[in-house]
């Protein structure tokens, strides 16, 4: 692994300990420290203090915030959040995988157009998009009007302010985050691998099952994390499309900070969420690695 310096025995000054790289690392380190480490430390520390009467914290150490988490009320919120995010992720895979697969197989010119089409909603304002869904889903909305006009239903369907509406909103919002990693993973696959599999007698379906799909697992897992993480912590869509009836962990945290003025409990919730998501990312990383590098090499015993 050691890189050979051009003149052996002469090590440039400062190179040995990487001090030379310091000026280049400073901006990045500062950004990370300021916007990641400091807020994280603050939130973590808040979680172990008592609440102030009008918000803020009183610096008395306590574990009460974590004890409170065990309340079925909050456990239920966490469970609902995980459940909702899971449904959104599964639906995103179901919709995103075929989409990515089709885009990869388009001719290059159409590929770019399709990718822009996937990204376009992402560039429009998030509130406008969500309001568009309200227009579509409400009792006098376009979907109900359309269905009534055709005569399929007599009474408008109750769609807005239900859990499915929240799921639709979250799915619509985060679908590009599933399609893009999948696209990048699928498009970087060596086309000769599918040819080789075909040449060895696999029909297109088996080629997909044994080659394309397994090799796209890292991209798939990345997409899942990209969708699951924000879907779990989003609080605007549950409020606008769920009518505040579906309380997810994001809403709960926001309410603790802004409404209940219980910063320490909010911090404890946020900490739990962060730990959960970090664990998820680690799981995703190791799973991806296992797919690419295979299981740890087994010793093959072979006499002779």
């Amino acid at each position: 692994m050691a890189t050979q310096s051009p003149t052996p025995g002469v090590v440039p000054r400062g190179a040995r300990r990487g001090w030379a790289a310091l000026p280049f690392l400073t901006p990045g380190t500062l950004v990370l420290a300021l916007f990641v480490a400091v807020p994280l430390l603050l939130v973590t520390s808040y979680a172990f203090f008592e609440r102030g009467r009008f918000g803020g914290v009183v610096y008395t150490f306590t574990l009460d915030n974590f004890v409170r988490l065990a309340d079925p009320l909050y456990l239920n919120v966490i469970a609902t959040s995980i459940g909702t995010a899971l449904i959104v992720t599964v639906l995103a895979v179901a919709l995103g995988y075929p989409t990515a697969l089709v885009i990869v197989r388009l001719p290059p010119k159409w590929r770019t157009i399709a990718l822009i089409a996937v990204l376009l909603p992402f560039w429009t304002n998030f509130l406008i998009r969500t309001y568009a869904w309200i227009l579509l889903l409400n009792n006098a909305g376009w979907i109900n009007q359309g269905l009534q006009a055709v005569g399929i239903i007599d009474e408008p369907l109750k769609m807005l302010y239900t859990q499915p509406a929240v799921i639709i909103g979250l799915l619509y919002m985060y679908l590009p985050l599933m399609v893009l990693p999948l696209y990048s993973s699928l498009s970087s696959q060596d086309a000769q691998l599918t040819e080789a599999a075909t040449n060895l007698g696999s029909n297109p379906f088996r080629v997909f099952r044994t080659i394309t799909l397994p090799l796209s697992v890292p991209g798939l897992l990345t997409g899942c994390v990209f969708v699951f993480v924000p879907a779990m912590s989003n609080f605007v869509i549950p409020e606008l499309l769920g009518g505040g009836k579906t309380v997810l962990i994001g809403n709960l945290i926001r309410d603790q900070f802004l409404k209940a003025r219980d910063w320490p409990f909010g911090a404890a919730l946020a900490l739990v969420l962060t730990i959960l998501l970090i664990a998820l990312i680690f799981a995703q990383q190791s799973a991806s690695r296992r797919v690419i590098e295979g299981p740890r090499e087994r010793k093959v015993k072979r006499d002779a």
């Binding site: 000769q192 691998l193 080789a196 040449n199 297109p204 080629v207 397994p214 295979g294």
Partner: peptide, 21 residues
């Protein structure tokens, strides 16, 4: 179709399946 032809090919880049032993 390609997968029914009784010919096999050795590819220039070998095209070995990286996720298989």
């Amino acid at each position: 179709p390609a997968h029914r032809r009784p010919v096999n090919m050795m590819f220039q880049s070998y095209a070995l399946f990286p996720h298989m032993s």
